[in-house]
Design a protein around this nucleic acid. Structure first.
Lengths: 242, 242
DNA sequence: CAGGAACCTTGATGTAGATCAACCCAGATG
DNA sequence: CATCTGGGTTGATCTACATCAAGGTTCCTG
């Protein structure tokens, strides 16, 4: 399966040098992989890996956004994760992907071969510790999302989604409170277990309620953060990890 | 957060000796924790840990079934995982639980203190490797469940649930194809993101369809496995990991 | 063995969100 | 500049599931 990890405090450059892989490893240890890396770019909309494909190498997202999803035979699709820069595709121990990985925007990957990577995991204990922690964080996030999918109303789903986008937005100086909405209405729907019409309607309602303001289809600002949070259905402290 | 791992090939005794913790560690390494373990039993229905509680020790399920769930302020609750014997409660690196852990049946735990366990993870590389792999398996399972919660119909949810119960049933000789249903209708509903009435109705429909037969409220047999699978909405190969 | 209590089933009705459909708008393309 | 295309909005209608409600079982307890 695809394993995704999150490390937003990296340098933004090639993740081989990232704290993502190991905050405690010294340079020597990480240099081992340098020679094996290669870059690849994928256009928005293209599928990076299909469910069931062989996982010949590991990749780390350098730039762009990708999604992890599954589509049932009749076309219903559910997104199960969003990959942001420094997230990771591939997992040690399994050689087949369980979900489709698709480029949401143009994407650059830094790839390296499986074998040497697995060896790294095997030989450098910090790496598997780090990956364990990250897998556990992802697991928490997935379970939070299960609560959303199973029990939240359309409005709560949208509010939770917007709050998540805002929380994850790393835009240095949040330019006038403006945030980018990286997904189409349909993609949001597939993320939230809704239809695109419901997403559109609920966003309209929240505009009328004075919670969000769209300057354009892809850019919004939160005009009432309190109200947004109240609309999520979560309690004060509770928060997703991702 | 609570981390759960699955190792069905253990000895069924105290998990300290389990392959669950480390298949590759030698006896000496594992013996270190032996002195620290203590047992605790919890009655069915009791909460083992509340969300937000301090995680003073790690536990491993010796017998019984527990659930992992979250309840929203207004009472809606969503189960996010089922813990079976040899599953694990607690995770290195975080000291607070993100979900409620509740005993579904009477439960016996084998507990040991956090600090020594974290040290074990730190010092014995196989352990964190093993835990990473298990966390990744859980992650796959959680994502499969997200597809169910977000996109499947009530009937598909029930069918998937029954299929999962059957797959996980370790009963040595599946006594006449009989399986135990360990959850009440309400618990099933909370697992599947439904109401208990819908669960009851869909089970009735599947009885009429000749897919399941209940000998009693808690015991059933699958009378048409083909049809059961067809009703799950999954494709032929696709399967949950758990 | 009588009386609860917890659990389950089934029916009637309500409703959130899906589905179907028409139209709008912005950016690409010739 | 016209037109086309891929989103996006908004309305009308439908439906799967929730909600409300009334029994029915099973099992526990005195």
């Amino acid at each position: 399966m695809t394993f995704v990890f999150n490390e937003r405090d990296g340098c933004g450059k090639c993740p081989i040098r990232h704290r993502a892989i190991c905050a405690r490893c010294d340079a020597d240890e990480l240099v081992r992989l340098e020679g094996l890396k290669s870059y690849k770019t994928i256009e928005a909309g293209q599928t990076i890996i299909w469910r069931g494909d062989d996982l010949s190498h590991f990749s780390s997202l350098v730039s762009g956004i990708a999604s992890l999803s599954r589509t049932l035979e009749d076309g219903r699709t559910q997104m199960v994760g969003l990959l942001l820069p420094s997230d990771f595709i591939g997992r040690p121990g399994r050689d087949v992907v369980e979900f489709d990985v698709t480029a949401v925007t143009d994407v650059t990957l830094c790839r390296f071969d499986r074998k040497p990577f697995e060896q790294l995991v095997d030989e450098i204990p910090h790496v598997s510790q780090r990956m364990m922690e990250m897998a556990l964080d992802e697991l928490d996030a997935a379970r939070d999302w299960m609560v959303l999918l199973g029990r939240k109303t359309a409005r709560e789903k949208i509010a939770t989604f917007l709050e998540m986008i805002v929380r994850r937005d790393q835009t240095p100086v949040h330019s006038g409170g403006q945030h980018v909405l990286p997904l189409t209405r349909e993609e949001i729907a597939n993320f939230l277990g809704l239809t695109l019409e419901t997403v559109s309607r609920q966003l309209s309602v929240m505009k009328k309620d004075g919670i969000v303001a769209f300057s354009d289809r892809r850019h919004f600002a939160i005009t009432d953060l309190e109200a947004l949070h109240a609309a999520t259905g979560d309690d004060a402290d509770g928060g997703m990890i991702i």
